[in-house]
Design a protein around this nucleic acid. Structure first.
Length: 915
DNA sequence: GCAAGGTC
C-alpha cells in the first residue's frame, strides 16, 4: 500500500460529514482510522495512512456542510434605502464565509497549513464543483503551496472510491463558473425586484394578510415567482372555465349473472342534435348484437425506485404531508441511519447494490416481514429486478431503507409513516407486477358501438405490500359473439365539462420539475415560501389557491406584458448555465447579457408601476395617506372596468365639478358612469357591493343637494354604480346626469340608467348564445315564452332557403344528414358555439317558415339543462331530478315517441316535432 | 428586511 519516500499530508474535503465518514471508512477499510474533533462540532476529521500511486500519504478527511460561502452586496448597498434598486444590477458583490460557517473555515485553514495536497471530494455536480472552489480559495489563502486534486466518484462504494483516489483529476472551473453566474443573477434580480415592489406597494395599500404590515416583504425570485405563477394560472383557468354541455348514450344490460354497463364508443358529443339523432336510431332498433368478446392479460407495474420528488409527491398524496415536512422527517430518519440520503434524483438502482440484503433486513417485521420472506423465497416467483426510472444524479442511490426498525420510541406518527413508505416502496420495486384478466365485450345497436369491460385480479403481487395503490376488479356477465339481447336501459344523458381542480402539492411539484424550477433539494422550499409570503394558501385538501396578494402581483406583471411569473426566465438562465459549464460561453458574457436584459426589464417594469398599483387596487384598499395623495391625480378606485377589462374605473369630477366614474383607460376606453347632477359630495368607501358582479365594486357615500332632489329622498346615500341601486337610478332619471355632452355624443358616455354593468354586457358576447347585445341573464334564447316574439327568416335565396337561428339570430347553413334513418335529409343548424338550434328543411318548406315549436323543443331541452338541469319541458317522461332524460315512456326499448309518448311512432316522425 | 443553492 505505502511506497517509499517521505509521507505527505493530504487534506481531503467532502461536501457533508456523512460523505467524509464513508470515504474515510472505505479508504482505510476501517484499519487504523482515528477520529478527532474539528472546530465545528458536526465536521469531524478522520485520519489514517494511505498510498496514492506509490506516494505514502497521511490522509486527513473532513467536510464542509454545503456551500461555505455566500454572495452578497458590499456593505454600502446592503441597506434597502442605501441606493436605487436599479443600481443593484452593477453594485459590487463579494463572496464571503458567513458567521455560522466560520468554524469550518478555521478548521480548513489550520489543516491546510500542515498539508501538501488538497483532494476535493465534493458531489460531482455543478454546485459541488462550485463548493470545491470555495474550499480551494479558503485553503490556498492559508497555504499557497498546496497541490490541488479532484476526486471523481458517483457512488460511495469501495471499488469506486479507491479508483477515484488513484485517478485524481483537475477541478472543473467551467462548472463552478456556471454556478457563480447563477448566484449573481439570482441575487441581483431577486434583491432589485424585491426592494422595488416591497417599497412601492407595502405602504400604499392596506395589506391585511400579515399581522404586521410593516414587516411584510413582497419578495421576488426567479424560482418562487414562477411557482406562484403555476398556482395563479390554474386558478384563472378555473375562474374562466365555461361549462359546456355534452351528451352521452348509456346502455346497460341485466341478466341472471349480473349487470353490464356499456359505454358509448364515441365517448360523448357536444352536438345535441347529432346525439338525439343517433339516440333515436338506437331506440328505433334497440336490439344489441355482441360484435366481439376480447380477453387480455393486463399488468399493473410497481413504481420506479424512489427519488426525492416522488417521495414528496407520494407522502403528500398518501398522508397529506407537506413536501417541506416530508423532507424534515426524511432528514431525521436519514440522520438516525434508517433510510438512505433523502435528496436524490436517482430512480434507478446501481447493479452493485445488494438488493437482497436490504430485503433480508425486513424479514422480521411483524407487518411486512412475511412479504419480505416470500420475496426471498425463489419458489414464490415474486422477485423481479427493479425498473429503471431513467434518472441518475451520479451521487446518490434511490431512497431505500438502510436499517431495520419495528418503530422507534421517539418517532412521531409521520416518522412511522414515512419509514413504512420507504420500506414498502422498496419491497414493491423488487416485486412482480399485479396481473389481471380483462374481458371486453363490444356490442352494436343500430350501427352504434358500445363496450363494457370487467377485470378479474389473477395475482396481486406487489399490491400485497404496496397498500397505497389499488386495482379494482369487476365482474361482468358472460357474452358470446353474435348473441343478441335487448338492453335493460338505453338513455340519453347529459353532462357538463368541469374546470380542472386547484393544483395539489403533487401537481405543483410536477409543474416545477417539468419546467426546471428549483432542484430536488429546494423545490419544497419554494412552495413553503409562497405560504410564508402570504402569496398562496393551502386548503384542507392540500390544494393551493393564490391569495389576493399573490394574484395581484402576478396580474400586475401580466398587465405589463411581462412573463416574469412564467418559468421561461429560469429556463433561459438554465440554458446559459449549461453553455458556461460546457465552455461554450464565458461567465462574464452570460452575466453581461443577462443582467443587461434584466435591468432593462426592471426599468421598464418600474416605469409601468401603475399597472402593479392598479392590480393591487383591485384587491386592496389604499392606505389613507396614499389615497389622499392620489385622489386629485387619478381618482379613487371603484371597480375594474367591465368594458376594456384592462384599467380601473375611478371616481372623478369633470371640469364642471360634476361627479363621474370613468375608466383610466381613456381615451382608448370610453366607459363612464355619470352620476346624478344633484350630487354635492362623493367618497369611495371600503364597502363592497354584495349583489353586483364581477366584483369588487366599491360603494360610494353620496351627499345630495337637498333642493335638487324630491323630498322623499334622503341627502345621504351609500350607493353602488354596478346597477343594483334603485335610488341612484331614480335620481339620475329625475335630476339628469352631470354630463352636458351626453345628449350630443351618441354612443358616448353611458348614463347610469343603463349602468356600467349593462354597458359592459353590450360589448361582451352572451355566454349562452355567443351573440352581442345582451348577457346570458337576459338571453332571448333562455327566456321562456319569448320564442313567439322572435321570427325566423326563411327567405327564398339562390334557389334555397336562408335560415337564421331562432335563438341567436345567426345565419344557419344547410347541411345534409348522414344517419341511417335520415340519410340525405337536409337540415339547418346554427354554427354559433354553444347554440343548438336545428330545423329540418322539409318542415320549413312544408310549413313555409313556421316557427319551429318542436324544433325549438329540442333546443329548449338543451337550454333548460344548461341552466342547471331543471325540468325538461312537459312532454316526454323526463327525469328532472338527476338530469337524465329518458324516453317518454321511461322504457325506450318498447319504442315510443319520447316527444308525445305515442307508441305508434318514434320521435323523428312525431307530427308535433318541427311542425 | 432581498435570491437560490448547498447543508445540520
Amino acid at each position: 500500500m505505502s511506497g517509499g519516500g517521505r509521507a505527505i499530508n493530504v487534506l481531503n474535503v467532502a461536501e457533508k460529514p456523512s460523505v467524509a465518514k464513508s470515504v474515510a471508512t472505505l479508504l482505510s477499510r476501517g484499519q487504523g482510522m482515528r477520529v478527532r474533533e474539528g472546530r465545528s462540532r458536526y465536521n469531524k476529521i478522520f485520519e489514517f495512512d494511505y498510498g496514492i500511486r506509490g506516494q505514502r500519504c497521511r490522509m486527513l478527511v473532513t467536510s464542509v456542510t454545503g456551500h461555505l460561502m455566500e454572495l452578497e452586496f458590499e456593505d454600502r448597498f446592503r441597506k434597502w434605502h442605501s441606493c436605487d434598486p436599479a443600481d443593484l444590477y452593477a453594485a459590487p458583490v463579494r463572496k464571503s464565509v458567513p458567521q455560522d460557517k466560520l468554524d469550518i473555515k478555521r478548521t480548513l485553514e489550520e489543516e491546510a497549513r500542515r498539508c501538501q495536497w488538497l483532494v476535493l471530494w465534493l458531489d460531482c455536480d455543478r454546485e459541488g464543483e462550485n463548493i470545491a472552489f470555495e474550499v480551494i480559495d479558503t485553503c490556498t489563502a492559508a497555504n499557497r503551496n498546496l497541490t490541488i486534486k479532484r476526486a471523481r466518484f458517483s457512488a460511495l462504494i469501495e471499488r469506486e472510491i479507491h479508483d477515484s483516489v488513484q485517478n485524481l483529476v483537475e477541478p472543473n472551473r467551467w462548472f463552478a463558473d456556471a454556478v457563480d453566474a447563477r448566484q449573481e443573477i439570482d441575487l441581483r434580480i431577486g434583491a432589485s425586484f424585491t426592494r422595488f415592489q416591497t417599497m412601492l406597494l407595502r405602504d400604499a395599500f392596506v395589506i391585511d394578510s400579515a399581522a404586521d404590515d410593516r414587516n411584510l416583504v413582497l419578495s421576488y425570485g426567479p424560482c418562487q415567482f414562477p411557482t406562484l405563477g403555476f398556482v395563479v394560472e390554474r386558478f384563472w383557468e378555473i375562474q374562466s372555465h365555461e361549462p359546456e354541455e355534452f351528451w352521452i348514450i348509456n346502455c346497460s344490460h341485466k341478466s341472471e349473472e349480473g349487470i353490464a354497463t356499456f359505454n358509448w364508443t364515441r365517448g360523448h358529443l357536444f352536438d345535441y342534435t347529432c346525439a338525439v339523432i343517433i339516440y333515436e336510431m338506437c331506440v328505433e332498433e334497440p336490439s344489441a348484437t355482441v360484435a366481439g368478446v376480447r380477453q387480455q392479460e393486463k399488468y399493473k407495474y410497481p413504481p420506479h425506485p424512489l427519488s426525492t420528488i416522488e417521495l414528496e409527491k407520494r407522502a403528500s398524496r398518501y398522508f397529506r404531508m407537506s413536501s417541506e415536512h416530508t423532507m424534515k422527517v426524511a432528514e431525521e430518519l436519514y440522520q438516525a441511519g434508517f433510510v438512505s440520503y433523502p435528496r436524490t434524483e436517482t430512480d434507478n438502482f446501481s447493479a452493485r447494490t445488494d438488493l437482497h440484503a436490504i430485503v433480508q433486513e425486513q424479514q422480521g417485521h411483524p407487518v411486512w416481514g412475511s412479504y419480505a420472506q416470500r420475496l426471498l423465497d425463489p419458489s414464490s416467483g415474486l422477485w423481479r429486478n427493479p425498473s429503471n426510472g431513467g434518472h441518475d444524479d451520479k451521487a446518490h442511490p434511490p431512497i431505500h431503507p438502510t436499517k431495520f426498525s419495528g418503530g422507534e420510541r421517539n418517532w412521531s406518527q409521520d416518522h412511522h409513516r414515512l419509514y413504512e413508505l420507504v420500506v414498502r416502496h422498496f419491497l414493491a420495486c423488487v416485486s412482480q407486477p399485479a396481473v389481471g384478466a380483462e374481458t371486453t365485450v363490444e356490442i352494436d345497436i343500430a350501427g352504434e358501438q358500445f363496450a363494457a369491460s370487467g377485470r378479474v385480479i389473477i395475482a396481486k403481487n406487489y399490491l400485497d405490500v404496496y397498500r397505497y395503490e389499488s386495482w379494482g376488479g369487476s365482474v361482468i356477465p358472460t357474452y358470446v359473439p353474435g348473441q343478441q339481447f335487448i338492453p335493460t336501459t338505453l338513455t340519453l344523458d347529459s353532462g357538463v365539462t368541469r374546470p380542472p381542480p386547484l393544483l395539489s402539492e403533487a401537481d405543483l411539484l410536477n409543474c416545477m420539475d417539468k419546467a426546471g424550477i428549483g432542484t430536488d433539494a429546494t423545490m419544497h422550499d419554494h412552495i413553503k415560501k409562497l405560504l410564508d409570503r402570504f402569496y398562496a394558501t393551502k386548503d384542507q385538501n392540500m390544494r393551493f389557491s393564490p391569495t389576493n396578494l399573490g394574484e395581484a402581483l402576478v396580474m400586475g406583471y401580466d398587465d405589463m406584458g411581462y412573463k416574469l411569473w412564467k418559468p421561461n426566465l429560469r429556463s433561459m438562465m438554465e440554458f446559459d448555465m449549461r453553455a458556461v459549464s460546457e465552455g461554450a460561453k464565458t461567465k462574464a458574457e452570460v452575466l453581461e447579457t443577462c443582467l443587461q436584459q434584466m435591468k432593462a426589464c426592471f426599468l421598464d417594469a418600474r416605469s409601468n408601476k401603475q399597472k402593479l398599483m392598479e392590480a393591487m387596487a383591485v384587491f386592496f384598499e389604499r392606505a389613507a395617506q396614499t389615497a389622499r395623495d392620489e385622489q386629485h391625480v387619478v381618482g379613487e378606485f371603484v371597480r375594474l372596468c367591465g368594458l376594456c377589462h384592462q384599467s380601473n374605473m375611478v371616481l372623478k369630477r369633470n371640469r364642471d365639478g360634476n361627479f363621474m366614474v370613468g375608466c383610466l383607460g381613456f381615451p382608448q376606453c370610453r366607459n363612464v358612469v355619470w352620476l346624478p347632477g344633484s350630487v354635492s359630495e362623493a367618497v369611495v368607501t371600503a364597502n363592497i357591493c354584495n349583489s353586483c358582479s364581477p366584483g369588487p365594486i366599491y360603494m360610494i357615500q353620496f351627499k345630495f343637494r337637498r333642493l335638487e332632489i324630491p323630498p322623499y329622498f334622503g341627502v345621504d346615500h351609500l350607493g353602488c354604480i354596478g346597477g343594483c341601486d334603485d335610488t341612484l337610478q331614480q335620481l339620475t332619471e329625475i335630476c339628469g346626469t352631470g354630463s352636458r355632452m351626453s345628449a350630443a355624443r351618441g354612443g358616448g358616455p353611458t348614463p347610469l340608467s343603463s349602468s356600467a354593468q349593462r354597458s359592459n354586457s353590450r360589448q361582451q358576447a352572451c355566454s349562452n348564445c355567443r351573440q352581442l347585445g345582451h348577457s346570458s341573464t337576459d338571453c332571448p334564447s333562455v327566456i321562456s315564452g319569448t320564442r313567439n316574439s322572435r321570427s325566423r327568416r326563411a327567405d327564398q335565396q339562390d334557389g334555397g332557403l336562408s335560415v337564421s337561428c331562432d335563438t341567436c339570430g345567426a345565419s344557419c347553413p344547410m347541411r345534409t344528414a348522414n344517419t341511417a334513418n335520415n340519410k340525405g335529409r337536409k337540415f339547418y343548424s346554427c354554427q354559433s358555439e354553444g347554440c343548438n338550434f336545428f330545423v329540418w328543411e322539409d318542415s320549413l318548406q312544408n310549413g313555409g317558415g313556421r316557427h319551429g315549436a318542436n324544433g325549438g323543443a329540442s333546443n329548449s331541452r338543451a337550454r333548460s339543462n344548461s341552466l342547471g338541469g331543471r325540468g325538461r319541458g312537459g312532454r316526454g317522461g323526463n327525469n328532472a331530478t338527476n338530469g337524465t332524460f329518458v324516453s317518454a315512456t321511461g322504457d325506450p326499448v318498447t319504442g315510443r315517441c319520447y316527444v308525445c309518448g305515442d307508441p305508434s311512432h318514434f320521435a323523428n316522425a312525431c307530427p308535433n316535432r318541427f311542425t
